[in-house]
Amino acid sequence: MSTSTEHVMHHDAPEVVGRRERLGVRLIIVADGAFIFAMIFSYFYLRNLNVNNGWLPADGHTFTVSSGWLLALPFIIAAISHNFGQKRRESMGVLSIVTFVVLAIGLVMQWSQLSNMPFMLAEEGGFEGAYASMAFFLGGANLLHYVLGTFVALGIAIRTKRGSSTGTHETWRLRTAGSWFTWLAISAVACAITTSFAAV
């Protein structure tokens, strides 16, 4: 996804370039994974400390558990549909559009979840407590993933439609994008599991 200078700058075979790009994307996934891990660590750390009983105040509100899982669903569908498509290239035309549409729906859902947070304090305009802060942050990370996922899915859909998505090199790119979509699904599930443990 990241570069295509190989026609000029590198004289390597598409497989070589493809493996290289896959490694690069996987390293970026490691970085993103560390970021998600840091958030999950923070979530449980604050939940266990529960300083001043402020994790979830007595009258505190939470996201519903189901909403977390509902928001992981588009990622899962997208990962399945993309990875299926890149193995059976004849169905990629349809499946790439499915991937894009599902992620775009997820993006809208995530946005609406974050704009209707139940745990905002009316007067001060702040958050109720540490749970509320963490839930917002995890939702924000999910939103970022949706944006990045939608961008990649849109690109793949357009390229498939235009027919620029042919050749060995493109096959490798679709496989690499597959790792990315799989990771997005995994991280969304991890976030959903995390937010399932709301009350102390």
Partner: peptide, 15 residues
């Protein structure tokens, strides 16, 4: 106005 580090609302400087 989140409270990751604000002890009054359950945050922690240790985090």
């Amino acid at each position: 106005g989140t409270h990751f580090y604000d002890a009054e609302f359950g945050g922690s400087g240790w985090l």
